[in-house]
Design a protein around this nucleic acid. Structure first.
Lengths: 146, 146
DNA sequence: CTCCCTGCAAACTATTTGCACCGTC
DNA sequence: GACGGTGCAAATAGTTTGCAGGGAG
């Protein structure tokens, strides 16, 4: 079974378990999220969903993205200077590399964060529940086209 | 000379070097930023400046904060789900610990980031120019008052 | 005396909300 | 059939902008 299919099922299951109805619009949104290799914005999801359901409204995308985020099925990357981006395939905290030119977002491998979190709890007394690690720079593609 | 004084002078110098005029409002904003131990929001700066210059407008705070940020004298922490916060004392990238209850922000000690950045350049080919590392959790004070 | 800066109000933009109708369960 | 979801439009909130008058250099 392809990964996309697995994610779809997982998200549908999470919706069902929480008594959310399975509507065509919802399925279309899940499909976009599961198939997306990148980190789509609400607008990008909107465009893709509209190609199959032309009457879908932006508000519906926002509402459903919020539901999925609250169910822990979607990671929201808020950028204050830009629109939010979403990851429906790895809906848990992980580092990102963001190209400041084309706004591409990648997921680099990086392990040592668990250690840092533990050290932090010891040092500050905080109960750490979430983190956010973003690196910003210029991707190879954008460096080439200078 | 107290640290506050040093930061004030440094910021004034940066403004002068870039042909920005030194106005009373600007000085008041610099003072708030240099004296602030925490990470004030625009609104908080606004309130503090108004206690001495009651006619100051919010737009002026925004404009000056943008100038200082662009001059590299102020670190902007954008939170998409909340208002931006600023650090005028350490205007360079560094990790933060954010209490999700009281919105307090601390600067923990943490070194290993330089290594991570280097590893990343090797792995992704990105030219890394900035990073952002935030940990979210509940501070000791807020844990106590539960 | 020249412009940059300020203060006011209006504009902007991403997101949220209210509400009547629709479709899932 | 009940009631949660959708689509539309209007509201919201932080931030930005346009412009006329004021003050730093």
């Amino acid at each position: 079974m392809p990964d996309t299919e697995i994610r779809m099922r997982k998200m549908v299951q999470a919706l069902r378990e929480n008594r959310y109805r399975i509507t065509p619009q919802r399925l279309a949104i899940l499909k976009v999220l599961a198939e997306s290799k990148g980190h789509p914005s609400v607008d990008s999801i909107y465009d893709q969903v509209r190609s199959r359901f032309p009457t879908t409204s932006l508000a519906t995308i926002y509402k459903n993205v919020a539901v999925l985020r609250d169910l822990g099925q979607l990671l929201e990357l808020g950028f204050s200077d830009d629109c939010n981006r979403y990851d429906g395939n790895k809906p848990y905290d992980h580092p990102h590399v963001v190209c400041t030119v084309c706004r591409k977002i990648l997921d680099p491998d990086m392990s040592s964060l668990a250690d840092m979190t533990q050290a932090l709890t010891r040092e500050t007394g905080f109960t750490i529940t979430r983190h956010r690690l973003d690196f910003f720079g210029i991707c190879p593609d954008c460096q080439a086209s200078r």
